[in-house]
Write a protein that binds this DNA or RNA. Structure first.
Length: 426
RNA sequence: GUGGCCGUAGCUCAAAGGUAGAGUCCCGGAUUGUGAUUCCGGUUGUUGUGGGUUCGAGUCCCAUCGGCCACCCCA
């Protein structure tokens, strides 16, 4: 143990028992994304550091202190493990002119990397599914993305997720608000903590989100962003709320909901649970109409969300929505001179016929082999001993139903096994 | 990155400075080749790691690694 290597902190193995749940989760989510008309795209895990600096924002926590960045000396490139997916997805859309024939709905999944202190529900390598809609200006796609999620939760067996919603207007509106906000914060600078002071100029909107009561007092008196929103922004938000209401999706407006990435405008939202402790946001997203231009592309609107797989899988466990383990159809037990080849061939033939078959390996007494057959969860134990070998047969013993063991002639193994399996599974 | 709590068998946990244990799991057996129960027997280990104090450290001290919780932040 003293010389044994460990996984990197905050980066976890998913062991077979959990991996089954992950696969079930992934299957539901991917089918759901496709059903809503989103198409898969895959991006590299590594991008040029400049992409994230430009997309996410220089003064965000992610860029300031959470990115895994390094200089690749082989060809002098500044590279970064992606801390989120939207920037890469937009980059890919620009690079390959994906919008040349109209708007696009895309989804992706995979690991993201942020160097934060690990905690329940927060890891340095974590998985996300993301959906992005490029080229749609109206609020209907914002609504679609949110309603989509509302429809997914029951499919995963999840309850008690609540939706928080806000609008943060356009860049111009925020700039006007920001000027007044900074003035207000400066007037009350004595009440600000170190963190708030630091953000006063770098990212004053985040000050409103502070949990420090002293800072909260100042924030509460600050000019509300809503007062600075123009007609178009208000109409967009109203349109979104109307669609959510007609879909029967409940939401709470949280005027302090400001997301940590600079590219958002208008709609921002989070799906939150109280069942996972401090890391309660299970899915978050919003609109980012300026991002294409910001990354050097032809201007195009965008909206999207990302959901955290670790958190959703953890919620599925809490909710008890754990799928049953897959049973092998047969476990093949063999003992005696020459039986291995026979058993090996029988297992092979049954697999070719589409059955899930585990061949016993590693020796052991007959009894221990039967124990392993049982422990494997197999429906049927197939037994090849010296008797069977001599007779040119194989014994089939159902393990999950009270049905007698019987012999099958070698030439009829596939047909008869299928018949037994059908009866036993019924 | 800051603070608090915690690391003993694969797993869940005992051992209040004096010989490291239980349950579970795993392995073998209970008259020839038949699985969950029952009964009998057996292995669980550099007490996370490295130092220090002490006649003696799982226990006290320091460091380090890891986990949990909170802050922070977000998925």
């Amino acid at each position: 143990m003293n010389t044994a290597l460990q996984a990197v902190r905050g980066m976890n193995d998913v062991l077979p028992e959990d991996a089954a749940l992950w696969r079930a989760f992934g299957a539901v989510v991917e089918a759901w994304l496709e059903r809503w008309g989103y198409r898969a795209i895959r991006m590299p895990l590594v991008e040029n550091t400049a992409l994230f600096r430009r997309a996410i924002g220089e003064s965000t926590d992610i860029v300031e202190k959470e990115m895994y960045s390094w200089r690749d000396e082989l060809n002098s490139e500044e590279l970064t493990l992606r801390p989120e997916g939207t920037a890469s997805c937009v980059r890919a859309a620009i690079e390959h002119s994906l919008l040349h024939d109209g708007p696009k709905r895309l989804w992706y999944g995979g690991p993201m990397y942020r160097h934060e202190r690990p905690q329940k529900g927060r890891y340095r390598e974590f998985y996300q599914y993301g959906a992005e809609a490029f080229g749609f200006r109206g609020p209907e796609v914002d609504a679609e993305l949110i309603v989509m999620c509302a429809r997914l939760w029951p499919e995963l067996g999840l309850k008690g997720l609540r939706l928080e919603l806000n609008t943060i207007g356009s860049a111009e509106e925020r700039a006007r608000h920001r000027a007044d906000l900074v003035r207000h914060l400066q007037a009350n600078e004595a009440q600000l903590d170190a963190d708030a002071k630091r953000r006063l100029h770098s990212n004053p909107l985040r000050v409103l989100d502070s949990k420090n009561p002293m800072v909260q007092e100042v924030a509460a008196q600050a000019p509300p962003l809503t007062d600075y929103l123009g007609e178009a922004s208000l109409a967009h938000f109203a349109g979104l709320k109307k669609l959510l209401a007609s879909a029967g999706v409940e939401f709470a407006i949280n005027p302090r909901l400001v997301r940590g990435l600079d590219y958002y405008n208008l709609t921002v939202f989070e799906w939150i649970t109280d069942a996972l402790g401090a890391q309660g946001t299970v899915c978050g997203g919003g609109r980012y109409d300026g991002l294409f231009a910001q990354l050097g592309g032809k201007p195009a609107p965008g909206v999207g969300f990302a959901m955290g797989c670790e958190r959703l899988v953890a919620l599925m466990k809490v909710s008890g929505g754990v799928p049953a383990a897959r049973r092998p159809d047969a476990y093949v037990v063999h003992q005696g001179e020459g039986t291995l080849e026979y058993a090996f061939a029988a297992a092979d033939a049954l697999r070719s016929a589409g059955h899930a078959v585990v061949l016993h390996a590693g020796g052991g007494s007959f009894k221990s082999q039967m124990k392993k057959a049982d422990a494997s969860g197999a429906w049927v134990a197939l037994i090849v001993g010296e008797d069977e070998l001599r007779a040119g047969e194989i014994s089939a013993k159902p393990l999950r139903r009270s049905e007698d063991q019987r012999r099958i002639g070698r030439g009829r193994i596939v047909e008869e096994f299928a018949a037994i399996l059908q009866r036993v599974k019924a």
